[in-house]
Amino acid sequence: MTQHKRRVAFAATVAGISLLAAGCASGTAEDTSGSTTTESATETVEGRIAVAYEGGVAVLDPETLEVVDEFASEEFVRLNTFGDGKTVAVTTSAGFQMLDTSEPALTDLVFEATTAGHVVSHEGNTVLFDDGTGTSTIVATDAFADGYDALPETTTYTADEPHHGVSIVLEDGELVTTLSDRSGAVALHAHEDHWDEEAMSADCPGIHGEGTAADEAVIFGCENGALLYADGEFVKFTAPDEYGRMGNAFVSETSPIVVGDYKNDPDAEGYLLNAVTLIDTAAQTYEVVDLPDEVQYTFRDIARGPGDLAYILASDGQIHVLAPETGELTDAYPVVEAWEGPVEWQDAHPAIKVAGDIAYVTEPATNSVHAVDLTTGEIISSVELDHTPNEIAIS
């Protein structure tokens, strides 16, 4: 397989800062749920798996993939890890509804939102973003440690205008959030009755997505590159193409390198992508890597895993292993049948999520979910569901 890199060696510029405003297989067993499990020495996954389907959500055991319980919901919902090892925020028309995967129970607790959007968990805080109002609701990640009796206390910040945005709270309490016109981001500190601006950049048109790499380096995607916030400053990375959109960042908090998706044709039909961005937040470098023709993916198909490697679930049905330091593909594991890209982004198509050494992969064409040991490429568990899986989350 060949790859081509388009490197922007330190094509970064510091944006202006304003203070004017703010193991081995040894047998196979089957259970009555239709799941198949192969014994493995791989580490046990904590938390359970939530899978959304048309009209509901199923909770699966992470080892056997047996359906523990399922709950009726709306026709289309999204799933977001809350960060406490047991809660999943289910986005519905009413807002963010809390799913307790340990009980399990789809609770009556809903953080109301007119248009529930991104959920970001980091350093003890989880932020729920309402696109319809531009409001960031900050919740302690362990707020449901003692149960789901009532909604916990929250802190909120509301942007000047509603927009499709995202926010994160850093370890020191700093809130980094998108600007209302989606031109960039701002870093804020809360005081008793107001928010003080620490830094701001309006050099990130169409800002979308967020990820936090090592040393709390926060990255956002732009329509012409990416925007980094680190050590109190914003740094802009410029894409090699006039239109070079990164919309999602795939990160490891133990690696300085961010893997992002990449699109350079605003008029391209479909949702399959064929290149990735590699951003070294420590060295402040940015490059685009063109992938082999058979390695095409969507926003649901990249995850970080063992060794801080990136794992790309491609439309050829394989998980391709990418080394972020070099941009090289080092291995490939067949998992599902080849698939075509979705007509609409909401349409069910294969997705991947990783916990520890295990990747959980959906295969809508067969109503299946597979668990793959990423250290060996072995499929260690599979289950055929009664419904077609769409989104997947690990609590």
Rank of each mutant, 00 (worst) to 15 (best):
V321S: 02
R300K: 12
P350K: 05
V8H: 10
S395P: 09
T32V: 14
V59W: 00
E66I: 06
G225S: 10
E223H: 12
L106M: 10
N80I: 07
Y297C: 00
T115A: 13
E344C: 15
Q3K: 15
A140Q: 10
T2P: 12
N80L: 11
H349E: 07
H163D: 01
Y148F: 12
H122R: 05
H189L: 11
D261A: 12
T238N: 12
Y229T: 00
S121V: 12
I352R: 03
D241F: 14
M98C: 07
D69V: 04
L128D: 01
P266R: 15
L329K: 06
N125K: 09
V289F: 12
F96V: 09
G305A: 08
T107W: 12
A303P: 05
D203P: 02
Y286P: 00
G225R: 04
L313K: 07
E223V: 07
A217V: 03
T115L: 08
L273S: 07
V14C: 08
D290N: 13
E174Y: 02
A214E: 07
L227V: 03
A58E: 13
W345F: 14
Q97A: 05
G83L: 13
S180I: 08
D108C: 14
D181Y: 14
D231P: 02
L179H: 02
A323T: 09
V120C: 08
T36Q: 09
V57I: 13
H194M: 13
S381N: 04
Y243W: 08
T155F: 10
E74W: 02
E174I: 14
P334Q: 08
G209I: 02
H208L: 06
A230K: 11
G247D: 11
N274V: 09
T32F: 14
G260W: 03
A116S: 06
